[in-house]
Design a protein around this nucleic acid. Structure first.
Lengths: 234, 234
DNA sequence: GTCTATAAGGAGATAGAC
DNA sequence: GTCTATCTCCTTATAGAC
């Protein structure tokens, strides 16, 4: 829902388009340019905010990262705060899409594994978004209090309830499901948020697909076994 | 920290004490003042840097948090960069003191449990230091490259070697010991670094000692079992 | 639609009064 | 030793030329 919601806002500035001839061609070109510029700015801002936090990030740095003049950033995004909030919302949307439909009747092993895997995938496909989010939480989550105490709490509670029923049915150990969710979150996000540490210690330039696959298997194995969940085929 | 830090700022107006009699007393008093001011500044800076990152933190904000004029911060600490580095070093020293003396002949369960517990203790006793460190890594660890690729890598390698031998002796599953160390780091630091998220989701004002004890037990149980390490008394 | 110029305030750091 | 005043640069944001 966030990929291309930019087009609608001010597509046609009625004044400009009043000349008849170039109208369609120009309109298209502008639409495309706008879309691309917005995408570039959002991507650049995600990197800069992730690296320096909200206050530490400057619009100048974002503009340079995006290869545009600074005032273009403000023209497209209004102001710094709005840009930041938009990025947070984009990341929350990606996040909310995860593990959206589990039920008590699902297989615990399958669900936990899918949970771990999808979190790893998200960390890998959007590391800057993950770090942006992390920086926001690290700073006390000034923009996200409502989200944490509302939507996200509900998300956790719903899944925790299912884990609890699995434990009652003897499908897993009676561990506190909320701590378990935090364990999975922290273990998976670590590879995005602390990437610099991971790469430095393991002497890598980057994590390969094979590395990520190994880590995912390691985490699944340890966490499932640690919770007394029997893997699928067993 | 902020309750009563206003009193000390102007205790001795040097004019008053310039008489010879009070000289020694002044010297002592200043020594004490200096020590206390430095401590206050370091504590305040740790909080502000943790919250806003290196760039986002302002000396003004640090000075206010410490209850001192801004130029006092510069007088004591030289410059922003030096202050920041000093804080990082202080945190690395705390960190290096952990789990400093393990050997192949130790009991894996005991060591892993002590590891988890001491990391939780550190996160709890120095949450701002932990978040400061996290913010530095999140931003690509510009000040810590050397440390990560040197000291810390050695620290990890030494412990990984021991874990590997335990696995060979059948004392634990043959999991990759480096991923295991990252798992323990991430799971424990989460409660300091993502405190805002944890508190928001669990609807708490703060984590009590009992909460921390429960979390520590949960993590020990899941991780030890997950690695095939038999708890001590078994 | 896009960019230059600039306003208004905050940053880190220093000089020098006290 | 401590703090006020200030320098210079950089910040967000806007006004208005093109």
């Amino acid at each position: 829902m966030t990929q291309r919601n930019s087009v609608q806002t001010k597509v046609v500035s009625s004044k400009v388009v009043s000349s008849k001839v170039a109208t369609r061609e120009r309109g298209e070109a502008n639409g495309v340019t706008r879309e691309r510029n917005e995408r570039e700015i959002l991507a650049a801002a995600e990197r800069i905010f992730a690296r320096h936090g909200y206050r530490g990030a400057s619009l100048q740095a974002i503009a340079e990262e995006a290869g545009l003049p600074k005032s273009n950033v403000l023209y497209y995004m209004g102001n710094k705060r709005g840009l930041y909030v938009r990025l947070l919302e984009r990341m929350m949307a990606r996040w909310n899409a995860l593990l959206d439909d589990i039920s008590v009747d699902d297989d615990p092993a399958e669900v936990l594994e899918a949970f771990i895997r999808s979190k790893m995938d998200l960390s890998r496909s959007h590391p800057e978004g993950s770090r942006l989010f992390a920086a926001e939480i690290l700073g006390g989550a000034p923009f996200l209090q409502e989200y944490l105490r509302g939507e996200l709490r509900d998300w956790v509670e719903a899944r925790a309830a299912i884990f609890r029923q699995w434990a009652e049915r003897g499908l897993m150990d009676p561990v506190d499901p909320v701590w378990l969710i935090f364990l999975i979150w922290s273990a998976t996000q670590h590879y995005a948020d602390f990437e610099a540490q991971v790469l430095g210690i393991t002497d890598r330039e980057e994590l390969s697909d094979a590395d990520v696959e190994n880590i995912t298997r390691f985490l699944s194995q340890v966490i499932l076994k640690g919770c007394g969940v029997t893997p699928r085929q067993a």
